[in-house]
């Protein structure tokens, strides 16, 4: 045995380094500006999304992703709570803090750090993600393991895996981008009937003028065949998804609510996902979120994970 296996591993490493170095230019479909500049005298203001009259479905969906990943701002900080409710009503929670810096330079799209602060058994668990502008380039992940007090370069979870044990997949939470799907308008002048949350009991966005878009994944076979999005005309991002399985049967409802702020920022402040196959619900409550507070990019590096005390 001795050193004979070493060349084999070195070859595998070399293959990894060669294949891992690729970074092609991202594909953009926009022809008109989708973001309008923020007022120069306002440091906390966000860029405003440009929902121009007659917007086509591809630009509308680009705006949707701008809002989803808060690209109207330079950075964000937030605190929130995952609540997972099973069919018996048992609730489990995950409290988190999140930091994100939008870069859109040097091939990097944004850097995102999420730190779980409760419950105690996963306190300190942190995931750092670097997303790249090239939609074909896989993200980089680091994870802080409190049980070992050790950082690990993590193999990215598969896109159809449940994120943090919730009903949202990794793709739905972080990795889906504009080029993942093809789009068509189902209706350009619809009225969304509203959606009643299973968790809060409230009805959201009742009788709201909306676009209705059908999104079909390019990846086939995939865990869903299509989804129908309801996008209010004053927001530009969907408030509700109907998600259909490969047999065409609806299996998921996803609700998203937004706060439209005077300074142009449009934070998502609540997400709820109900999986009808398991009758399991996930609610993501965002306690607070602030933008353009000057989050330093150095804090979204492996070093930041090593600061963790737990």
């Amino acid at each position: 045995m001795k050193l004979k296996l070493l060349p084999f591993f070195l070859i595998i490493m070399l293959v990894g380094l060669i294949f891992g170095g690729g970074n092609t230019k991202p594909a953009f479909a926009e022809e008109r500006p989708l973001l309008l500049p923020a007022p120069v005298d306002c440091s906390t203001c966000c860029k405003k999304v440009n929902l121009y009259p007659g917007i086509d479905v591809n630009n509308l969906m680009q705006i949707k992703y701008i809002i989803k990943y808060t690209k109207f701002a330079k950075d964000q900080e937030s605190v929130g709570n995952f609540v997972m409710i099973d069919r018996s009503g048992l609730k489990r929670t995950r409290k988190w803090q999140r930091y994100r810096v939008i870069l859109e330079k040097d091939g990097l799209d944004y850097k995102d750090l999420i730190v779980l602060t409760e419950p105690q058994h996963i306190k300190g668990l942190a995931v750092l993600t670097w997303m790249y502008l090239d939609p074909n380039r896989e993200r980089d992940n680091w994870i802080w393991l409190p049980s070992q007090r050790k950082i690990r370069r993590a193999s990215p979870a598969e896109d159809d895996d449940a994120a943090f044990g919730s009903d949202l997949t990794t793709e739905e939470l972080t990795t889906r981008n504009w080029s993942s799907e093809t789009y068509k308008f189902v209706k350009e002048d619809a009225t969304f009937a509203g959606y009643t949350s299973q968790y809060t009991g409230k009805t959201y966005y009742k009788n709201t003028p909306s676009w209705v878009v059908e999104a079909t994944p390019k990846r086939k076979p995939w865990y869903y065949s299509r989804r129908t999005l309801f996008i209010p005309k004053d927001i530009g991002a969907q408030v509700h998804d109907d998600v259909f399985d490969p047999n065409g049967k609806k299996f998921k409802d996803i609700l998203r609510t937004y706060e439209i702020r005077d300074n142009g920022c449009i934070p998502m402040n609540y997400v709820e996902c109900v999986d009808h196959r398991t009758n399991h619900t996930t609610a993501v409550e965002i306690e607070w979120i602030r933008f353009n507070s000057g989050v330093d990019e150095k804090l979204l590096s492996p070093k930041a994970l090593m600061r963790t005390k737990w």
Binding site: I12, M13, V15, G16, L17, F19, G20, G22, N23, Y132, D134, N136, R137, E138, R139, D140, N141, R153, A154, S155, P156, E158
Partner: peptide, 17 residues
Amino acid sequence: FTKGINSGPLTGTTVRG
């Protein structure tokens, strides 16, 4: 060293040493 392979047939693989 650690390296996440981000593209090509080995995408999603992490090598470390």
